[in-house]
Structure formats: structure tokens, C-alpha cells
Design a protein around this nucleic acid. Structure first.
Length: 273
DNA sequence: CACGACTCCTGCTGGC
DNA sequence: TGCCAGCAGGAGTCGT
């Protein structure tokens, strides 16, 4: 399930094949994913050059002179660069043609998105889906202070606040559990009751968790081009995620699984207070 | 505003 | 062996 590290690794994997390349057409095999495809703007991309790739939270951005293509992988989506003649599979919903190659979006569960932001509609940062997003966790704007100040009136559990994405983006269900474990914070703790010193540990834990995941994903970069790779996912070793009843890697006590807002959370009651 | 429930979708797992 | 309920999950939307 793509979280920020997977999305960033995807961006790095496909960027060399996209930046500076001219779009020769698009193919749509479905009316849309989470939202209907923006058919007219997509068709108008033929002849336009992809200037640069980017990322905001879990949104992948392809910048053109006249606007930006916004891609989201949902929880089952992945992108690959393939020969243009590659026959489509059942869940291949969108191709961006680039002469003899193409960028293909596959998404079995169709939680993903393909959207267009026109430069005439103002700054990309003001796009309805992007403007409420919190800080980028791997950029200097993210800090313990930001977490602390942002949570003074938040009584919800810290795990829930991290997932909400309005203070910091890109911390999905897996990395929320992992980061809270590394910081030694119980996921049930009301966010406004956590002191600045503990947010220092959490901010550092989030940075380290995400950076380590991106580094691990680096080995899959070449898989984003070609038909035989499994681009988009990479297996990792987790401290607590998906390890219910297994021994904590630090203290050996059984990892607990609880439900928070219809989502599974994993933690060690002994190491996280 | 803050927050929790609900929702979209398909593939996989477990129970019978 | 087959069937089906339940679960997984990002994040927008809606009701409170």
C-alpha cells in the first residue's frame, strides 16, 4: 500500500523517463478511478512536454508549461514505464504515451486518482486537494514545534492526528504505528497532552522511519521500467506493524493490535507509554 | 472548528 | 472444494 516512501520511490523511478519527454497521446480504459478522468485536458496533453516531476504528500505531480497532472496511487496503484505496444491488463486504466514508451497506471482497487490542475486556475498549492495538506515530513518546514503547536487543541489520539494529514503529510497507517513505536509514545495518547520534548522524539522518529523506507525502496528503482518488475512496493521489516501477538523486537512482550477509527494500530504497551 | 463514521473498490483470507 | 462474509486501506465527505 503506497505511503509517502513508496510514492517518492515511484517518482524517482519514473522521473528519468518522463522529464523532458513529449507526450504523444493518452489512453483511458475506464471512466475514472476515484473521480472521473478529466478527459479533455488529458487529450490536450498530446504534443506537450513534461518539464519536471514532483510530489506533494502522496500526490505525484507531472508539471507541464500550462498546468500539472496530479496522480494518486490510492492503496493499490502503481506506475511503470513500458514499451508502448504492451497489451493492457485487467486493471490498467490509464496510459500516458511517450512515443515508443508509455507511463502506465495500474490500480486494481481504483482508489487512485488522475486529475488536472490548469495553470490558469491559480497556484497549484491552492488546489482543493492540496491546500489543506500539512508539512512535508522530510523538509525543514517540519519540526517538533510544528507538531506541538498544531496539536494544542486536538484531543483525538495522536495516531489519528498523524493520519489526518493536516499537520504532517505522508504518515499512513503503517508508518504511524512504526513512528510512534520508535518515539515510545502510546498511540492512544490524546495529542494535546503530549509535551514538546516528546514531540521532538516523534518528529525525529517520523523522519527516520520515512527516510529509511525510501532508502530501502531505492533498490527497486530500476524495476519501474520493464514488464517483469514489481514496481511500487518493497518489503520491509517492521517493529510492530502487522505483528500482532509477536514479540516486541525491543522488550519481547507481545505486540498488541487495537482499532482506532476503523483502522488497525499496532504497538507495544511496554515500550510505548 | 474538531472529530468520528461512512464511503469508494477489489483481492485475499478464514470459517463453515 | 466452494462460497461468502469480513477485512485491508487513503482520504474525501458528511453529520454531529
Amino acid at each position: 500500500m503506497p505511503e509517502l516512501p513508496e510514492v517518492e520511490v515511484t517518482r524517482r523511478g519514473v522521473a528519468p523517463f518522463l522529464e523532458g519527454r513529449c507526450v504523444t497521446g493518452v489512453v483511458l480504459r475506464h471512466s475514472g478511478l476515484r473521480w472521473p478522468f478529466p478527459v479533455a485536458p488529458l487529450q490536450a496533453l498530446a504534443g506537450c512536454v513534461i518539464r519536471k516531476t514532483g510530489r506533494r504528500g502522496k500526490y505525484l505531480l507531472l508539471h507541464f508549461d500550462h498546468g500539472t497532472l496530479i496522480l494518486h496511487l490510492g492503496m493499490s496503484g502503481h506506475l511503470r514505464v513500458l514499451p508502448a505496444a504492451t497489451p493492457p491488463g485487467k486493471h490498467d486504466h490509464f496510459d500516458l504515451l511517450l512515443n515508443e514508451e508509455m507511463l502506465r497506471l495500474t490500480d486494481p482497487r481504483r482508489f487512485g486518482a488522475v486529475l488536472w490542475h490548469d495553470a490558469q486556475d491559480g497556484d497549484l498549492e491552492n488546489h482543493v486537494l492540496l491546500k489543506k495538506l500539512g508539512a512535508e515530513p522530510l523538509e525543514p518546514s517540519f519540526s517538533a514545534q510544528l507538531l506541538y503547536r498544531g496539536t494544542r487543541n486536538r484531543k483525538a489520539a495522536i495516531k489519528q492526528v498523524l493520519l489526518a494529514g493536516d499537520i504532517v503529510v505522508g504518515v499512513g497507517n503503517i508508518y504511524a504505528s512504526e513512528s510512534l513505536f520508535r518515539a515510545g509514545i502510546n498511540p492512544n495518547t490524546p495529542a494535546h497532552r503530549i509535551a514538546l520534548a516528546r514531540y521532538e522524539k516523534l518528529a525525529q522518529a517520523i523522519r527516520e522511519t520515512l527516510a529509511a523506507a525510501i532508502e530501502q525502496g531505492g533498490s527497486t528503482l530500476r524495476d519501474f521500467r520493464g514488464a517483469d518488475g514489481r514496481a511500487g512496493y518493497f518489503q520491509q521489516t517492521y517493529f510492530v506493524y502487522d505483528r500482532a501477538e509477536e514479540p516486541c523486537r525491543l522488550c519481547g512482550k507481545a505486540v498488541r493490535q487495537i482499532r482506532q477509527g476503523q483502522r488497525s494500530t499496532f504497538y507495544c504497551a511496554s515500550c510505548q507509554k
